[in-house]
């Protein structure tokens, strides 16, 4: 519970952060809300020798109307997303899910960018974004690039971001009339999901799963079944196809597979019903 020693650099701009990453290479880690990284450091599962603090970059904390999309700064806190009228109107699942993360103190520290960049399959916001669709903006020494959310999560705690890149913005489509649902199953209110399911129905239906594999994932089999005309119940039955659920004290693969089916079923009933 006591981290190894590290150097601390406070970045006063996105460019300064990128420069610091370039200077320190693999040894450096960005620090946003710190609510995923610091616990890892305290358990000594991560021991970066330099922390580049971007937590005070207030110009990366915003929720703006971008015309056909909503643009969210990477440093926007979960609590701001939870309480945003713009998001509640245009992408209600995101506001709702932000309110399901941890407890109030976590939501006042944790950032959307941090949650995505961390890439934890058990976290809530990646699933919401996978179901919603959207684009991420990353900035590196060579400038900006866009990454589709569906291309972003590449493995266990791994993303498409390069070591010297900073996630700056998240763009989500406006889907004011879409059906949606988020089903989070956990044992205590403040915990990560044992399994979760997100669904957004906007013409076609996107379904994403929480904690059913090494990375946040879409339930492609469910989506295909629905596209092929299957009932919600029949589609939910294939919820775990292609998943590789983890096993831990909260659940083995059999139980998680079952939960995924139940929760996807509930999510579809709510989103399509």
């Amino acid at each position: 519970m006591i981290p190894a020693s590290f150097d601390y650099v406070e970045a006063d701009s996105a460019d300064a952060a990128i420069a610091a990453l370039a200077e320190h290479g693999d040894e450096a880690k960005l620090l946003a809300g710190g609510h995923s990284l610091i616990p890892l450091m305290k358990f000594r599962l991560a021991a970066p020798s330099v922390l580049v603090d971007i937590g005070r970059l207030s110009d990366l904390s915003y929720i703006n109307d971008g015309g056909d999309h909503i643009a969210i700064g990477a440093l926007t806190r979960h609590s701001a997303i939870e309480t945003s009228d713009l998001l509640t109107t245009n992408a209600p699942i995101l506001a709702h899910v932000a309110g399901q993360v941890g407890d109030p103190s976590v939501r006042h520290r944790g950032t959307l960018g941090g949650s995505l960049a961390h890439g934890d399959p058990a976290s809530d916001l990646p699933a919401a974004l996978l179901a919603l669709g959207g684009t991420l903006v990353a900035k590196g020494p060579n400038g900006e690039r866009e990454i589709a959310i569906t291309d972003f999560f590449t493995g266990f705690l791994e993303t498409a971001l390069a070591a010297d890149e900073l996630l700056t913005e998240i763009r989500v489509p406006k889907v004011p009339g879409a059906g949606w649902s988020y089903q989070k199953f956990n044992r205590r209110a403040q915990d990560w999901a044992i399994v979760g399911a997100a669904a957004v129905a906007n013409g076609s239906t996107n379904v994403a799963l929480v904690n059913m594999g090494p990375a946040p994932m879409r339930a492609t089999a469910v989506e295909q079944a629905l596209a092929g005309g299957a009932s919600s119940a029949d589609a939910a039955a294939v919820a775990a196809e292609g998943a590789s659920p983890p096993e831990d004290l909260n659940g083995d693969a059999e139980y998680r597979t079952h939960l995924a089916q139940v929760l996807v079923g509930r999510a579809l009933d709510e989103a399509l019903g």
Partner: peptide, 28 residues
């Protein structure tokens, strides 16, 4: 409903932290 120190066959505690050892909160 929630608590219990779990051990593997080698005597390692599998849930020594409050992330895995579920002390309830007022919400529960």
């Amino acid at each position: 409903l929630w608590e219990g120190a779990e051990y593997d066959v080698d005597g390692n505690c599998k849930n020594p932290s409050l992330m895995d050892y579920l002390v309830p909160s007022a919400m529960e």
